[in-house]
Amino acid sequence: METRELTVVTGSFVTFQLLFSVVSPWLSSVIAPGYGQLPPTKVTEWNSGDPTTVKLNVAITCGYLLYLMLLARNWTTMGDGFFVCHHLAALYAYGYVLTRGVLPYFANFRLISELSTPFVNQWFFEALKVPRSHHLVVLNGVLMSVVFFLVRIAVMPSYWASVLVTFGTPEFERLGVGAQVAWISSCVALDILNTIWMYKITRGCYKVLTRAGGQKAHVNNHKD
């Protein structure tokens, strides 16, 4: 993903988040006085609006995830069990969004995690044999760790709080067992994988930083 695409993704996320969190609640309170009396689940549904745009986002994401067929053809060089599990879990859940149009808000919420993808995919440093102590590698490692934590780990409490509010509501019951299982099981699996990856990323970032710091000190000692 190039800087241009990253800018579009970020701008789209910020715009829709502002519409959902700020514009819609304010405008709805002005136009419809009864808005403030709605239960939390209805407020979420109200503010998320027409799911057409969300379904388009999910459709684009599903096409991207389906490239795991490429991994199957090149498993010896690109294979990663956790990576494939992540793709399959996401496709399983997003399939319900596309076929039944359910859970648009939660589907879009999960797409926040893709803001970390540009930093995770900077594999070309290793392919070009750029030293891990190089300032670009170190910078990318730090940014990857910070952004990954913000969009995949730090959002977990907020996300699951929104999920728990729906339990036992008529809307949750109308989903049916299939959609309920797809939604909850896929999110649990994805968050477990994200936690494992966060641990690995943190360890890798720590090693890169300590190695870079050690080499810098070594150079300074020689200068002295």
Rank of each mutant, 00 (worst) to 15 (best):
T3C: 12
E5H: 12
T7N: 12
V8F: 10
V8H: 11
V14P: 08
T15G: 14
F16K: 07
L19K: 08
L27Q: 11
V30C: 14
A32L: 14
Y35E: 13
P39R: 08
P40M: 07
G49D: 07
T52Q: 07
I60S: 02
G63R: 12
Y67W: 15
A72G: 08
R73Q: 03
N74D: 11
N74F: 07
W75L: 10
W75C: 08
T76C: 10
G81K: 07
F83C: 09
H86V: 01
A89E: 07
A90C: 09
Y94E: 03
G95F: 05
P104Y: 04
Y105V: 01
A107H: 05
A107M: 04
I112G: 00
I112A: 04
L115M: 10
T117R: 02
N121D: 15
N121C: 13
V138S: 01
N140C: 04
V142D: 01
F149C: 06
S158N: 09
V163M: 14
T166P: 00
T166W: 06
G168N: 08
V181N: 04
S186Q: 01
I192C: 05
I196C: 11
K200P: 00
L209P: 03
T210Y: 01
A212Q: 03
G213W: 01
A217F: 06
H218Y: 12
H222C: 13
H222G: 15
